[in-house]
Amino acid sequence: MNRGMHDGQSQGFVTVFTAGQLFALKLERVRDVFVPQALSTVPLAPPEVAGLLNLRGRIVTALDLRRRLGLPPREDGKPTVAVGIEERGELYGLIADKVGDVMWLPASQYETVPTNLDPRWAQVCAGVYRLDGQILMVLDVDKILDFSQFGAAA
């Protein structure tokens, strides 16, 4: 939607829903969006690691966005979607409930992280957009993948 707004002043985002919240990831960081299948769980792994899966012959480490953000766990059997991100030659899949639209939003409306945000979220939040009726939280991929913070959210 709003492809016409793609100019120097706007930025592209992939949006996902997780636990009823809308989150956004910068479009240029997203490699692909796929439905995670045949997830192999990894014993002894941090709780944020949902498991490993095979995406076209490459091993992807699936990270549960709910766990990472300290949100309540997903009900078993509910469909999920994964946002593929490549970081230092490794593939990660951020698992969310549902993928939303790709949005182009004007940079002028980008706001810094509100000070009253839950510190656990503030840690991984790059900024927010105020949309009609809801707040779009832009996630900082580098901070999401900061493994030193893993295990703390649970």
Binding site: S40, V42, A45, E48, V49, L52, L53, N54, I59, T61
Partner: peptide, 19 residues
């Protein structure tokens, strides 16, 4: 993110496509 787990030396994709 998994490298600290000393129990594992690596991972791989099996013939059936599972990890």
């Amino acid at each position: 993110v998994l490298r600290h787990i000393s129990m594992f030396s690596g991972n791989t994709i099996l013939g059936d496509g599972s990890v």
